[in-house]
């Protein structure tokens, strides 16, 4: 089965938050869970310049997801495409006092699994698998004005990464990336900046 990933070239991100609301709509989310978020980096002094960037982040779709590892009922699974999915029924049926939503604390990345109080489940980006099944792009990918986010088989994304100079960064730190092996990869701007 082909493995999917997301490539985020945030040089072009304008911080408009379209992706976040596209995600809210697609997943019919109430206020609270934010599966897709746009973080602001800076403004900070880097060398002679004052720099700011926007950084879109979501579930990193790890090959070895710590959230899945800690879930006591095994409600978080990897599907054949490498997408991290929540078994909503299993999650809903689990007493949250029992599981303590361990998945959220286990995630080393900026957007951990998000708790949806209306459904009493945690949710995360599912790469809009329902749209992909219909032959459409994930909603954030489609609606992103500046085409910051690319969805596709990891093999094809790797080609794009090569074409763009083989520069990727590890949002969340090098160590978690080595262990977790995310399927979501960020390409940074060529300008200097720091990640905090």
């Amino acid at each position: 089965m082909v493995k999917y990933g997301l490539l985020i070239d945030f040089d072009r991100c304008q911080g408009c938050n379209a992706c976040e609301v596209a995600c809210k709509q697609e997943n019919e989310l109430p206020v609270g869970p934010r599966l897709k978020q746009v973080l602001t980096i800076g403004p900070e002094n880097v060398g002679q310049r004052l720099i700011m960037e926007y950084l879109p982040v979501m579930c990193m779709h790890c090959e070895n997801p710590p959230c899945a590892a800690v879930c006591p009922v095994g409600a978080i699974v990897k599907d054949a495409h490498g997408i991290t999915l929540v078994n909503e029924k299993k999650c809903h049926d689990t007493d949250k006092d029992f599981c303590k939503k361990a998945c959220i604390a286990a995630c080393p990345y900026p957007v951990p699994p998000q708790y949806n109080p209306e459904k009493d489940i945690v949710q995360m980006c599912n790469m809009c698998i329902q749209r992909v099944g219909r032959g459409e792009e994930p909603s954030c990918v489609k609606h992103c004005i500046n085409k910051v986010i690319t969805f596709g088989p990891i093999k094809e994304l790797s080609k794009i990464i090569q074409e763009r100079g083989n520069r990727t960064i590890t949002v969340g730190g090098i160590l978690p990336n080595v262990v977790c092996r995310p399927s979501v990869v960020h390409i940074p701007p060529k300008r200097p900046y720091t990640l905090e």
């Binding site: 938050n17 609301v21 709509q25 004005i145």
Partner: peptide, 24 residues
């Protein structure tokens, strides 16, 4: 129930901003 960008539109080409996406 849903809003989607129109890919045929010569300006927005299928994309939308958060204000349009939240219109419902």
């Amino acid at each position: 129930i849903r809003v989607e960008g129109d890919p045929e539109h010569p300006g927005s080409k299928g994309t939308l901003c958060p204000k349009g996406l939240a219109v419902k």
